[in-house]
């Protein structure tokens, strides 16, 4: 957890040599450097609408708007700029989804879902088919919110979409894709279990 590492290092003043970074920054760098040849043609005709969740721990609490821009650059590159809709508010002022702080394990399920209602409304307002949640807590929470909002959207990891746009996403790595993407751009379909 980015924030827990950064805050922990400071709080307990642990001296460390390596630099703590978030992977979004590198995804963006690699795409810009052409090392990751993502393209969004797969979504040209499908026109599936995507939105992205700005994880509080990484954006507001750690790296701020610059990393949010990187995240958006990555998402737009893989799903196509015209298919991306931002939630409002977003970036450093985004609403928390309710996954962090141990809420998922706290046992207060109704409170957590009530807490997440604002996030659910945000996603519904964008009318997106998919919400990319690049942080595990957000992913779990938003996935759960989808369930209580009669599956209005699919919740998917960032790496899944990157691989899909690279055309290297195998059949068994599509746990969180909806039926509309299950068969798209499948890498080695024959190895499906």
């Amino acid at each position: 957890m980015t924030f827990s590492v950064l805050a922990g290092l400071k709080k307990f003043n642990i001296d460390h040599k390596c630099e703590v970074k978030s992977i979004y920054e590198y995804y963006a760098k690699w795409i810009r450097e052409g090392k990751l040849k993502v393209n969004s043609d797969w979504n040209k005709d499908l026109k599936l609408k995507f939105t992205v969740q700005d994880p509080c721990q990484i954006i507001r609490k750690s790296y701020g708007d610059p990393i949010a821009e990187d995240l958006r650059f990555v998402v737009k590159s893989i799903v196509g700029e015209e298919n991306f809709i931002d939630m409002t508010p977003n970036r450093s002022n985004n609403f928390c989804c309710g996954g962090g702080g141990g809420f998922l394990q706290s046992g207060y399920v109704d409170a957590r879902r009530a807490y997440g209602k604002i996030k659910a409304d945000q996603i519904l307002a964008t009318g997106a088919d998919y919400c990319i949640a690049a942080c595990h807590n957000c992913h779990a929470q938003i996935h759960d919110l989808a369930e209580v909002n009669d599956h209005a959207w699919q919740t998917v990891h960032l790496w899944t979409m990157i691989c899909l746009s690279l055309g290297i996403l195998g059949p068994n790595e599509r746990e969180y894709l909806g039926d509309d993407l299950k068969e798209v751009n499948v890498f080695h379909p024959e190895t499906a279990l």
């Binding site: 957890m1 980015t2 827990s4 590492v5 922990g8 290092l9 307990f12 642990i14 460390h16 040599k17 390596c18 630099e19 703590v20 970074k21 978030s22 992977i23 590198y26 990484i58």
Partner: peptide, 18 residues
Amino acid sequence: TRTALNKADELGCKIFLN
């Protein structure tokens, strides 16, 4: 945190990537 960072330093990694 200390376990993770020590391991990273022990391995001589430059970037602790989340």
